[in-house]
Amino acid sequence: MAKDYQGEEILVVRRSLFDELGEFQGINADVDAYLPSLLNPENNFFMDRGAAEDDPSHKQLIPYCIFRVKDDQGTRYLHYTRGKSGGESRLHAQVSIGIGGHINPVDQREDHLGFDTYMAGVEREIDEELNIEGGHTNKIVALLNDDSNTVGQVHLGVVHMIDLENDDVAANEDAIANLAFTTLEELRGELYDRLETWTRCCVDVIEEL
C-alpha cells in the first residue's frame, strides 16, 4: 500500500542532469563539479513526494548530515536507530549516522531554489530532528548516490560534516531512537552489519571527507 504524503512537495532534479554531470556509485567528494548545477534554480523544482518516491527519472536532493565531536574521548560520531515513525518505511530499524530530510517550499528564500534555499532546509531539518546545545560548523563534503536499491534510485545525498562544540545532543523525534556517540572503530565493527546503505558508504571513507 502506497504511503500518503499528504501533498508534500520536495526538491528534485531530473535524473538526466545527474547523468550529464557524471553518474557515479557511492561517494564522490568532487562537490564543485555537481552542486552548482544541482542548486541552479533553472535545473531543480518541487515535485509531489508521492509521485517522486516511485519515479527513478528524478532524484530527490537529500541533505545527509554527519555529526562529529572531537574531545578528550577522541573523535566520535552521532548514530541512531531509525524508528517506525520515520518518513521512509524502507529504512526502519537500521542504524544511521545521517540526519536530514527533504527540502520543501517552506524553505524558499530570495534565491528561489538556490544555495540559500537549500541551506535553509538543511538547518530546518537539523532543528526539527535534534536539540543541540552549543555551536556547530556545517561543511558540504561529498555527494552520495546508490542505485543498487529502490530507495537509493530516487534519492541523491548531499553529505554534510557537522563539527560540534560538545556532545550535548538529544533527539527531538520518535523516529530517532537510541541516539549516542560512538567511535569509527565501533561503526566499522559490531554495528557495521546493521548500518543503512548510505551510512556504510560514508563510514567506509569517512577519514577522507
Rank of each mutant, 00 (worst) to 15 (best):
T75H: 08
I103Q: 03
K84I: 06
H79Q: 15
L39M: 03
S89L: 14
S148H: 09
K84W: 14
N149P: 02
S57M: 05
R76C: 10
I206S: 11
F18L: 12
L156M: 06
V151C: 12
Y64C: 15
E8Q: 11
A171K: 08
N178Q: 14
V106F: 08
Y77R: 06
R109P: 02
N138I: 04
D32V: 05
L195M: 11
N104E: 14
I103A: 01
Y192N: 00
G121C: 07
E110V: 07
E9W: 02
G134T: 01
G152C: 08
Q108H: 01
E9Q: 15
Y64V: 05
D147V: 00
Y34W: 02
D71F: 09
G114P: 04
H155G: 01
E42A: 07
A142H: 01
G74R: 08
E173T: 12
D116C: 08
L35G: 02
K84P: 05
D174L: 14
I176A: 07
I62Y: 13
Q94R: 13
Q73M: 09
N43Q: 05
Y34D: 04
I176Y: 09
I132H: 13
A2F: 11
E125F: 08
M1I: 07
D167W: 09
G189E: 11
D167E: 14
L17W: 10
F115M: 13
S89P: 14
E190R: 13
D163T: 14
N149H: 05
L209I: 11
D48R: 11
D4W: 05
H92N: 10
D167R: 07
H112D: 13
G135L: 06
E129M: 05
D30F: 04
G26M: 02
H136C: 04
I10V: 14
R200E: 09
E23S: 12
L184A: 04
R76H: 08
D147H: 09
A180G: 02
Q94I: 00
E53W: 02
N131M: 10
I176M: 12
Q153E: 13
I97N: 03
Y80M: 07
H102K: 02
D168G: 00
N28I: 03
N43M: 01
H102L: 05
V31F: 06
C202Q: 14
T183H: 09
D163M: 08
D72W: 09
A93E: 15
L91C: 02
N172I: 07
T199K: 04
E186V: 07
K59G: 00
E88G: 00
E196A: 07
E128K: 14
N178D: 14
Q108A: 07
T75S: 11
Q6G: 09
L144S: 08
D19C: 03
Y118P: 03
L187R: 05
Y34T: 03
R82P: 01
A33D: 11
E186W: 03
